[in-house]
Amino acid sequence: MSGNCVIQPYGFAGIYMLLAAGTVYALRIWRFAPWTRIAAMAICGAVLLIPVRGMPLYAYPYGLLGELSVTTSLLLAGVVLAALTGRGFITSRDRAFLFVPVCVLGTILYATGMSILPAGIYEAGFRPLWILALLLAWVLSGWMAGQPMAAGCVLAVVAAYSLRLLESDNLWDYLLDPILVMWSWGWGMTMLVRRMMNRT
């Protein structure tokens, strides 16, 4: 029972996006030159492939976090692209359009997972007819509200689910993950504090 570690492309991509987004975002805030951000991205990729005790480094956070949702990956890609180009691909309105439902749905999903609410919400994700109806309404409202990027994000989630790009067969895992829900909570808190400070 021996052999080389199999690199899971989506698993590697998720961990890489997480590290790269954090790094280039920090470099952007500290006003490092754009070329340093590109170099940092390359270094991030190389670091994650360094073998540690017979496995590439990425395999350790991947073991802990598993695969990131498609939504998280797209938002992280948006952060990376914004840091590299200086141009925001995902506007604050897009973010609000994504984060508010994510915050609400994620809270309900995890509350049922913790037996706080007695409903099989996660289990419904294996036969997700009503969840698809919800996402369809979400995409339509995004399009009508002039948020094509946000609507495109949700479309990408459903497309990835149909193609089973992740390990999971559950639509929720394509849409949400704990990192995204915490991110949306953090975003919500920031918005709340900003609004309160503007009032005073």
Partner: peptide
């Protein structure tokens, strides 16, 4: 099955 082989096949750390 052992932890090392499972981890290598799944591409992630399995302890």
């Amino acid at each position: 099955a052992d932890a090392g082989e499972t981890g290598r096949d799944l591409g992630r750390c399995v302890r």
